[in-house]
């Protein structure tokens, strides 16, 4: 059984790491989780991002969810937001595409232009 004591250890370790990089979140991933997004597989896309973050130990990446954004025909839709850079929106996402976005964009900093459906705000 997991306990709060396990969490305390995680927190201490995470705080050490955060000190080394000024506690900043480098990149934010926002998965659209409206009704049509869910029906089109957004939960599996979310799952893939969480798996990749966990397996690759990406400690400076944040993932959240949002509702519909009027891009229903391109669901599942994912925004990647990096400080000081225009927002990149990926569409028609799948777990495979999400993995490629993690490797190329999140880790190596190259936008995967094949999947981009919008940029900027």
């Amino acid at each position: 059984m997991k306990t709060l004591a396990d969490l305390k250890k995680i927190r201490e370790k995470a705080q050490e790491e955060m000190k080394l990089r000024d506690g900043k979140v480098r990149i934010k991933i926002v998965v659209g989780m409206g009704t049509s997004g869910i029906a089109m597989g957004a939960r599996d896309v979310m799952k893939t991002f969480l798996e990749e973050i966990s397996n690759r130990n990406l400690t400076d990446v944040l993932v959240t969810q949002t509702g519909e954004k009027g891009l229903s025909s391109m669901e599942p839709v994912v925004d990647v937001i990096e400080e000081g850079k225009p927002k990149v929106t990926y569409g028609n996402m799948t777990p495979e595409k999400a993995r490629r976005v993690v490797v190329e964009h999140i880790v190596n900093g190259r936008v995967v232009s094949d999947y981009v459906v919008a940029t900027g705000d």
Binding site: M1, K2, L4, D6, L7, K8, I10, R11, K13, A14, Q15, M18, G23, V25, L50, I53, S54, R56, N57, L58, T59, V61, L62, V63, T64
Partner: peptide, 25 residues
């Protein structure tokens, strides 16, 4: 859980694992 974590995000790798294991159990 969030209180214990303070400013550590829920998508911190070890926290994802913790939540996943707890829910699975």
């Amino acid at each position: 859980i969030k209180e214990e974590l303070g400013d550590i995000p829920l998508t911190y790798p070890d926290v994802i694992k913790y939540l996943e294991q707890s829910i699975n159990e």
